[in-house]
Design a protein around this nucleic acid. Sequence first.
RNA 1: UCCUCGGUAGCUCAAUGGUAGAGCGUUCGGCUGUUAACCGAAAUGUUGGGGGUUCAAGUCCCUCCCGAGGAGCCA
Length: 488
Amino acid sequence: MRPAASRFGRWSGRPPTRECGEATAASRARSADLSESRSETPAGDGAAPDDAAPVGDVPSIYIARLADHVGELVELRGWVDKRRSSGKIGFLELRDGSPDTVQGVVSRKEVDESSWEAMQAATQESTVRLVGRVVEDARAPSGYELHVSELEVLQATEEYPITPKEHGTAFLMENRHLWLRSSRQRAILRVRSAAIAAIREFFDRRDYVLIDSPILTPAACEGTSTLFETDYFGDPAYLSQSGQLYLEPAAAAFGKVYCFGPTFRAEKSKTRRHLMEFWMVEPEVAFLEFDGLCALAEEFLAAVVGRVLERCRGELESLERDVSVLERVQAPFPRMRYREAIELLQGEGKELQFGDDFGAEEETILASQFDRPLMITHYPVASKAFYMQPDAEDPELALALDVIAPEGYGEIIGGSQRIHDHDLLARRIDQHELPRQAFQWYLDIRRYGAFPHSGFGMGLERFVAWLTRSPHLRETIPYPRMLHKIYP
RNA sequence: UCCUCGGUAGCUCAAUGGUAGAGCGUUCGGCUGUUAACCGAAAUGUUGGGGGUUCAAGUCCCUCCCGAGGAGCCA
């Protein structure tokens, strides 16, 4: 940290030297954009002119753009991902945020003394600046290498905690802020980012309006889960466990709406399938009835999985994900009524009765019967939330839908048609011993222009865990919040 | 909250109740094509805390703390 500090000025404040003299209008405009373009993500579709920042005669580029500069001299800046060295040649694997890393080859006879010394000082995770020529090389995993002519260490890192060998999850979780740099974590979080983009795109293209539901709420949404309580100017307030109830009024204003934000559950769950804070996307659609809801969930999953497959092939490959499982996510999905599921499980030797909930093991048995997501419908009213519409043909059954992901990832989607009859909903609120006063606004939706409507919620982390076949949800969110764990 | 397993070097792990070990990382040296590079050398310990049994405890007993997995609950 010592001598490097003085180098940061040069690092961040380097003036674009082509500014004066023969600078064209275009190059001047690009130089003015310097700071902005440099902070852009390097993994874009190719639109970002990140190579528009000249340093002397050498363009400063991202690894993702190497292919456009074969044979040219370029500057790269980033972190030493790995380093291997021999007596007179060194290999420095550079990471700059691009999906791939690139290997810089530093040959003693081709660089000056200070660059060679820098090679010795460039320990794992040191920040470095490389200038060199881009060459194609079949030996390089990404197909390109940088033949380094100049190497500068911006900060030499000492004793980086995460070594190239194995580590336990407890240690990695304590170092989550550093673990993010690892290739596997980068791939998973890129898939998460792409999944979020695909989800938004799905709804935006279908003219849904994004409604941000509140995170601080005055009372329990569904009255079931344990909630985080906080002090709201002397009154208790709770962190939201679902945006759905707040979405229903908005559906009367905009027809098709969705929310997508963090959700909080204070359940003392301590399994690979639980987080205290997770992200949930919830669409809600006016005049959509149960069959339409099932079709929407099906279309949604197929479209989003398809988009992620398009955009994250490389990430899924590096995670050694069997993408054929994801390629099969095409409508129609298998469907099964709750009663059939119970019978199937009884046939497997499970001692289950009508009315019982499925545990993780039961869900896995059911899902393993099929090669794509399984839709289970028509659950007993008693086992579901108070607002779910009863089936007209059998009022003991709720028009509820769960989608179970294959491969043991459990329920990723839960949804239902909502009760739109005022008196029935009021009765249910009373039966569940919920405070009628607190739900007055919710009942209002059934007083002023009632309409049938349906919606579902999908837990983002479970979805991403399934996409990436992650063993635990904690790897699918940048900073997981787990039972008694809130660091870093 | 309950059940199971665990806590030894910075990390991953060994060690019949009898001298505290290895690999990686670090430091030093060697090596011109390495891909978790390789070869040689060195430094690194309050064995999670407290109490007990014993001639002797990393090891056995009690207790507390911390971690991992699972159950319940859920997305």
